[in-house]
Design a protein around this nucleic acid. Sequence first.
RNA 1: CAAGUAAACCGGGUGACCGCCCUGACUUCUAGUCGGGGAGGAAAGUCCGAGCUCCACCAGGCAGGAUGCUGGGUAACACCCAGGAGGGGCGACCCUACGGAUAGUGCCACAGAAACAUACCGUCCUUCCCUUUGGGAGAGAUAAGGGUGAAAUGGUGGGGUAAGAGCCCACCAGCGGUUGGGUGACCAACCGGCUGGGAAAACCCCAUCCGGAGCAAGACCAAAUAGGGGGAUAAAGGGAUGCCUGGCCCCGUCCCCGGGUUGGUCGCUUGACCCUUCCGGUAACGGAAGGGCUAGAUAGAUGGUCACCGUCCUUCCCAUUUGGGAAGGAUACAGAACUCGGCUUACAGGUUUACUUGCUCC
RNA 2: GUGAGUGUAGCCCAGAGGCCUAAGGCGCCAGGUUGUGGCCCUGGAUAUCGAGGGUUCAAAUCCCUCCACUCACC
Length: 131
Amino acid sequence: MRGEEYLTKPQQYALVYSKGSSLASNLVVMKTLPSGLAWSRYGFSVSKRVGGAVTRNRVKRLLREILRITPLKSGWDIVFIVRPAAATADYTGLKSSVDGLLSRAGLLETEGRAAFPSEVKGRVVENQRFN
RNA sequence: CAAGUAAACCGGGUGACCGCCCUGACUUCUAGUCGGGGAGGAAAGUCCGAGCUCCACCAGGCAGGAUGCUGGGUAACACCCAGGAGGGGCGACCCUACGGAUAGUGCCACAGAAACAUACCGUCCUUCCCUUUGGGAGAGAUAAGGGUGAAAUGGUGGGGUAAGAGCCCACCAGCGGUUGGGUGACCAACCGGCUGGGAAAACCCCAUCCGGAGCAAGACCAAAUAGGGGGAUAAAGGGAUGCCUGGCCCCGUCCCCGGGUUGGUCGCUUGACCCUUCCGGUAACGGAAGGGCUAGAUAGAUGGUCACCGUCCUUCCCAUUUGGGAAGGAUACAGAACUCGGCUUACAGGUUUACUUGCUCC
RNA sequence: GUGAGUGUAGCCCAGAGGCCUAAGGCGCCAGGUUGUGGCCCUGGAUAUCGAGGGUUCAAAUCCCUCCACUCACC
């Protein structure tokens, strides 16, 4: 798999965990960190508490499909941490949950800029202060 | 028809759109176009056995571990097949850690006289004493009966005896021997004497087998750092990795500290492989001929959204012999990571074959 | 991938074939004490010994197979 749009190294995950800001729903927790790159990268963290190899693979495939369709704002590293409740969720449930989180963070390409430009700016400044 | 036993197998299908990984050809210039392929019977648990790679090579001993009726199969096995013995089931059939307890050491709580060599209550005989019915003391015989226990030294019946006892007899169980059958485990017949627990999933003994580490093995390329400090050493030291010994080969060095690296390619899928037919073998399996190529990711591909059809269950309606229609629900266990052979465990539902028992009809 | 370990009451734990119907501490309940509460005293309840099977006369303990969890190494 091409590494351009994905987070692959453990160090990258550790950076987002420690310095990123988080938003949560009942299915997933989203951690975001501005990367300064021209594109956005994302990754998934599905622990064994979610289920066996089959259910964990299925959750990752669903999330990959959702993020393939969804247009993202560029310049962010995003990690989705899956909660055990997502094991029984279907595609539409996960999609609404992820879309809700992304729009709350203002990372959707179309909606985000138009709806909450000021809040997005504020969030970026806040994150940079952490760095 | 019902209940069951044993084997083998399937484990959703078709279509549309949007995607992922590998690969062939073409275009061209590093992205497209057109093809081809893309999870399992357990891929799982990681419980065994191997291949492969490295540890320089070989042999022996100790320790440790594994296996444990017999014969065969296999690359090997704790697996498989066939057979024996024991046990279970009316039966088809199923189950079995199934070597050794006179090689030794230790254990068997409580109860009981006694748990390994013992005599409590008893039974019998005899001597002495108490004047008698009877009682007491002592010497001896006995292992039938009582009682305890999970277990008490063959069982049942008869004879026999002072009372008893394999003391004797018949049958049964066990042991030993002879003969016969079988490659063997073992079986059958006959004879003999009369026989003294359990536990080796307590330590152990016997027989057979086993070197260690693991694809993050290992090889190559690129990049980067150091070319340092300390110690041990020349008839010694080191190089196998539980310990020891011997041989042989290699190194002139070896160990510690410090420093660097987590990129890429190979290994990586043609293999004890799969299918068909024939031959040998009771079978596991082996041999021959012909045909086939069947996932290779690297934060880890094999997916997502729908539509229709299957299969099963429930309810209702039509029909009342099969069946037809509608609505709702269910559609399992589970995801390759070096590769095989097994074992074990999980699994909605279904198919086929052979057989057993019972009921009914001809 | 390899190796090691743990599972016993709500929690922490003892046990090492028979005296285990399982000890102890914290917690819980009831009573006493106190004007009330705490401390204290007395009594009590709470355990399919992770699950299943086997060996044994007898298993929390020995053996086998599963399940869950933890740790170590590269």
